[in-house]
Design a protein around this nucleic acid. Structure first.
Ligand code: FES
Ligand code: FES
Lengths: 140, 140
DNA sequence: AAAAACTTGACTATTTTAGTCGGGTATATA
DNA sequence: TATATACCCGACTAAAATAGTCAAGTTTTT
């Protein structure tokens, strides 16, 4: 039950932007240096974030990325969604013809996993990027 | 963010036992047939469950497995623990020398992931095997 | 023109997952 | 006591997912 690095780095990078952007674009190079994340990997991640309207880009020199919403309004669930990091603890829902064990009826545990997904999703829904920034000490 | 099949099958198999055991051992063969899970895979799973004292075994003919605790007392978290399915959404905690980004201080998102882990774990802690059996319809 | 920085698809090595296989051992019953 | 049933256990493997790199661009500012 692990989160992949893409999602982790995305949240980390956006938190970095929230801290260091002073109304101007933040370059991936700076994020890479501050957060210790590979620049090439960040590029891949920000491609998705841009397509999903989490950030917008400014090209050319002094360019970089800007948060579309304020950290107070940006839900963590939006970020994860942008990276296809769906919280689906099991995967039997897609083709309703087949349950997880190949039978036509839902298995005995189905409702339980559904509840779990709801539980986790509600956590991400209720957290905003700004929540990560509170009471950080000397970090970053 | 997916649960592995071992954990899923473990919960499913134990739920099956809770339903079909009438004070006698339930064989893996029966579980396999009812739940559509490979017998050989179940053996591997039950090995762990046994080692972690979730079930005990009865060898020989008419043998099988028996739940050590009643379904009302068996926490889902115990089951997952038996299968090493730790809920650690990120993995930076083990060697405290290194944070997830290789720096000496914890990264800006660290506390957030910790909170997430607690949130998910509390779900598994508070659910008992018997909770899965409530209001199941024609399932199984 | 040159440099900084974003854009994009394809590619790859590593790790994890989801199982299988083979060769056991114990026990109830006929 | 033979035999079938069912647990026991380590080793193995194919396939999928992950994490990250590479190459070859384009755009914009100075
Ligand atoms: S049928 Fe949905 S989890 Fe088994
Ligand atoms: S240092 Fe723990 S998650 Fe980054």
């Amino acid at each position: 039950m692990k989160l992949n690095t893409k999602s982790r780095y995305a949240v980390m990078a956006l938190a970095d932007m929230a801290v260091f952007s002073r109304n101007n674009a933040v370059s991936l190079r700076d994020i890479s240096l501050r957060q210790g994340i590979s620049l090439l990997y960040l590029e891949q991640i920000f491609l998705r974030l841009k397509k999903n309207n989490i950030v917008k880009s400014v090209r050319g020199i002094n360019g970089g990325y800007i948060l579309v919403k304020s950290p107070k309004e940006l839900k963590i669930s939006d970020i994860l969604l942008a990276l296809d990091q769906k919280v689906k603890t099991i995967g039997c829902k897609k083709d309703s013809k087949k349950s997880c064990n190949g039978k036509s009826t839902k298995c005995i545990t189905h409702n339980f996993w559904d509840e779990l997904d709801i539980h986790i999703n509600s956590f991400f829904e209720n957290k905003k990027l700004s929540d990560l920034l509170k009471n950080r000490e000397t970090r970053i």
